[in-house]
Design a binder for these strands. Structure first.
Length: 492
RNA sequence: GCCCCCAUCGUCUAGUGGCCUAGGACAUCGCCCUCUCACGGCGAAGACAGGGGUUCAAAUCCCCUUGGGGGUACCA
């Protein structure tokens, strides 16, 4: 059997959408599973909407997800160029061939005329299709149109009878009636650019693509493409149409559902492994017990047979949970690496981190690891470990630090910390327990005020860890500062 | 309008005629752990869209209805 060759062919009209990313992933997994080739092709024939910047964004997004391509931009390959905008002569060549063999013709109908006829067809309850009136134009008629200044398009002469079967690896055989479902569609626009349904065939055929794995939304166009393959004598590839990704309201996932671009997820602090794992589960499943898959496992286990047919709702909560799982699996060093840019950007860490500061950060991260869902969360959770100007959550202050004895309790802890030989649980807990008896309170009544005083919030790692990390000097200063603040605001 | 696809807990799914009083995961709720929040552990609630067939037997096969999605462009 020949080498598997698949491709991902995004059009650079914006960010890489999660749907596109999932398509890229399935192609990539399929290629890697079969030891095949993953081709990246940029479909930039829509000059009005395509930009170079968008191309770069897509390339960056794929790199972030670690879906490396074997052929394509920056990689080269024997079947280039990999930008459609650089392949115009090829499309022209094959369109000419269709013209020569009588499987294509020039059409002079204007968009207005076409639209009007379409409306009439809808009104008559028929399926909308080009009526073929330019199929057999005489030279005189043609010249008359040219004289009018009409610029022709090229239409494909589709089959006039029978049916076109799409053998789909996910959906099985899907049959389309040639007469009503495949009309003489445009393959070359009047502006000299090929249309998608034509260019995609020429490209996939010339690039020797063996399996076309793409979104469900392309299924209806497939019979048109198959007819082009056949008219041109190309081998028809295998198709696999994967289900769409929907928003919570079951409509197609789009920007209005919130973050949908891979770039956004990257910026919010999602790990590539978590994104990939989650995306893989959108429309694919392995068995009844596993949800966490490493990349090698995904490659080993992925198959089109197990791709589901129904659309999947994108569940951000599950993605978040999964990201947390991957964060917890990281080594401390690995966690440090992913957190570093976020901390630097937020001003928690300098550009150059000294060995001592890194060591301290590693200890902080050890405490925060189980508390992170997104890498970006580290900024808020770690702030008070780095800055003395952390903010007090006044609602919490009101609730916790206005109780009777607050001043005495904080004063007691202040003294205990001052005298302790070492700020750890072993040395402090006995002292705190003494305090409990003295004030007639429970551990929580002592620890919570301390926590709020030191962090400004009622949420933090275990108090002894916080005390140890902060160190005597900062702890004493923060307790003093908190007491001053309370008095200033006349809360105690 | 016409055509195509799809249909199991709120969500992602397992299930390919008997193993299903339908399994797992996220989310939800309760309990445990506990100095808070996480993590972790235990448990609860929660689905075969509806109707007809086929069969000894149907979540699984067929048909219809309903619902959702997509296509129908000189967008990709």
């Amino acid at each position: 059997m020949s080498t598997v060759r698949v491709r991902f062919a995004p059009s650079p009209t914006g960010d890489l959408h999660v749907g596109g990313a999932r398509t890229a992933l399935f192609n990539w997994l399929f290629a890697r599973h079969h030891g095949g080739v993953f081709v990246l092709r940029i479909e930039d024939t829509d000059a009005a909407r395509s930009t170079e910047a968008a191309t770069q964004v897509i390339l960056d997004a794929l790199e972030y997800l670690k879906l490396e391509w074997d052929e394509g931009p920056g990689k080269g390959g024997d079947f280039g160029p990999y930008y459609q905008s650089q392949r115009l002569d090829l499309y022209k060549q094959y369109a000419d061939r269709l013209l020569e063999i009588g499987r294509a013709y020039h059409c002079y109908c204007t968009p207005e005329e076409l639209d009007q006829r379409r409306q009439e067809q809808i009104k008559a309850g028929q399926s909308t299709r080009y009526d073929g009136r330019c199929r057999h134009l005489t030279d005189e008629e043609r010249q008359a149109f040219e004289a009018e200044g009409r610029v022709p398009v090229i239409r494909f002469k589709s089959l006039e009878e029978g049916e076109t079967k799409v053998e789909d690896l996910v959906r099985g055989t899907v049959i389309f009636d040639n007469v009503t479902q495949v009309d003489d569609f445009v393959i070359f626009k009047s502006d000299g650019m090929p249309t998608y349904n034509f260019a995609v065939v020429v490209d996939d055929a010339l690039m020797k693509i063996t399996h076309v794995i793409r979104g469900d939304d392309h299924l209806s166009n497939t019979p048109k493409q198959i007819q082009i393959y056949e008219a041109l004598g190309f081998a028809v590839p295998k198709f696999a149409h994967i289900p769409m990704i929907l928003g919570p309201d079951k409509s197609l996932l789009s920007k209005r559902h919130g973050a949908t671009s891979v770039t956004q997820f990257y910026e919010e602090g999602y790990l590539a492994e978590a994104m990939v794992n989650y995306l893989a589960l959108l429309g694919w499943g392995y068995d009844d017990s596993q949800t966490i898959f490493s990349i090698p496992e995904l490659i080993e286990k992925f198959s089109l047979e197990r791709v589901s047919k129904n659309p999947a709702v994108f569940d951000k909560q599950k993605l978040e949970w999964m990201n947390g799982v991957y964060i917890r699996e990281l080594t401390l060093e690995g966690l440090y690496e992913v957190c570093l840019p976020f901390c630097q950007k937020a001003g928690l860490l300098p550009e150059e981190v000294s060995p001592e500061l890194k060591d301290y950060t590693l200890r902080v991260l050890e405490q925060l690891q189980s508390r992170l869902k997104l890498v970006a969360d580290v900024v808020d959770l770690a702030r008070y470990f780095y800055r003395d100007d952390y903010e007090y959550n006044m609602e919490v202050v009101q609730k916790i630090l206005t109780k009777p004895q607050t001043e005495e309790i904080l004063g007691y802890v202040h003294a205990a910390v001052k005298d302790a030989p070492k700020l750890d649980e072993e040395h402090l807990k006995p002292q705190f327990q003494e305090g409990l008896k003295k004030f007639g309170i429970k551990m929580g009544d002592l620890i919570q005020p301390v926590r709020v005083a030191l962090t400004g919030t009622n949420v933090s790692p275990g108090i002894y860890d916080v005390l140890e990390l902060l160190g005597r000097e900062r702890v004493l200063a923060r307790i003093e500062h908190t007491l001053e603040m309370l008095k200033e605001k006349e809360l105690i």
